[in-house]
Design a protein around this nucleic acid. Structure first.
Lengths: 209, 209
DNA sequence: CAGGATATGTTATAATTTTCACTAAGGGGG
DNA sequence: CCCCCTTAGTGAAAATTATAACATATCCTG
């Protein structure tokens, strides 16, 4: 239960547990055991208990966990007890799809604006969300207390976008460009490389035959 | 260099190295050291060498690696020496964006068709790619030797889609629905949960203050 | 109210993965 | 042609992460 260092794999799993618990809540299931959580997320019960143990004691021995209560705890751990304002840079196919992605909204991520440098795209609306010129990002981020930015531009432009958004004061970046980006120490960054995931599949397919 | 068991993290990094090497190739850089690869991908040189050592000896001591040759080796390791045919189930925003995603095409993944059950969407074209009814997936997969399927439907439908595509004979699934899916032993599956990545960011942001 | 059944929290053990340090080998300059 | 500089390959040590086993606590039944 010490704050020590928490494995990233644990955080990933907590996020998955949380989504599963939400689903249980919807189905009016009030109590669940670590064994059943494990079954629901394709994991092991020991892992579930261990992951939770980093943060406290949330269950009742002999009984299990209260679904709603546990999910509430996990959401708080993940920082999801309030909404987050997000901007997306890159109003292409991927950026536009992400701006409409229900999975973000459901978890409290609000995409407030999109940014691009293509005059064709500036001024358009994707759903409710307007596309602004990249030059306005700093003002927008400050005015709307935006702390997270999604980068969905072609790889060659990604590093340049970083300088813009870091200057704007963004604290965390979710990068979809398949390129390693340099960011200042104080900025969190996470890469989502879609092709990598495909390639893990093909690697495994080749192994098994 | 034993076949033993290769960490998934190694495969992820190989994929990243490969993309970096491609970029170097384009810039006409012919030789590179493990130190410089590490610098280019935000990793460590020991890690680079170790990762490669699982598969053979690709460098020259005192010199480094031949960029083109090394990339060619990695591509082969990952199973990317030929193209892969892919179908996407779910012709919503995300599925459509993925069908046009350059990052897949560049790495030899060809999206041949999309599938949906919404009559509104069936028959439409997203770029060059037509949307077919899900009932036709088996025939399509067989006729086109499709081995990989991307699932981009809302979470509640994802497990049902699995039964369709597994029946169709697909061997690997890239799942974007935020839900744990059950698949037969012989089918590879990989989950890309976009909200999870956001939540790792928020978790870290909360830690650091 | 006591005892058995159940399921958590925790400690210990095992497995995995990364880092470090060193050995070996190729290339260029004197 | 030899020596020095550079850098890959490798094996051992350290750190991390996962698994397993157990001790503890709660509930429910009779």
């Amino acid at each position: 239960m010490k704050s020590h260092k928490i494995p990233e794999a644990t955080i990933i799993r907590l996020s998955v547990y949380s989504r599963y618990l939400k689903q249980l809540e919807i189905n009016n299931i009030t109590t669940i055991s670590s064994v059943d959580i494990a079954r629901g997320v394709n994991g092991s019960s020991a892992q579930v208990r261990k992951d939770l143990a980093y943060f406290g004691e949330f269950g009742t021995r002999g009984v299990g966990y209260n679904v709603k209560e546990l999910n509430s705890h996990i959401m708080k751990i993940l920082g999801l007890n309030s909404n987050w304002s997000v901007v997306i840079v890159g109003a292409g196919n991927l950026g536009s799809a992400l701006s409409q992605y229900k999975g973000f909204q459901e978890r409290g991520f609000r995409v407030l604006g999109m940014f691009d440098n293509d005059p064709e795209k500036i001024g358009r609306r994707i759903g409710e969300i307007e596309v602004y010129p990249i030059s306005q990002i700093k003002e927008f981020v400050e005015d709307n207390a935006v702390r997270i930015c999604v980068i969905a531009v072609p790889a060659p432009y990604a590093q340049e976008v970083v300088t813009w958004v870091v200057d704007a004061g963004v604290e965390a970046i979710l990068n979809f460009a398949p390129r390693a980006l340099s960011v200042p120490e104080h900025v969190e960054i996470r890469n989502v490389d879609l092709a990598v995931n495909m390639e893990i599949l093909t690697f495994n397919m080749c192994l098994n035959k």
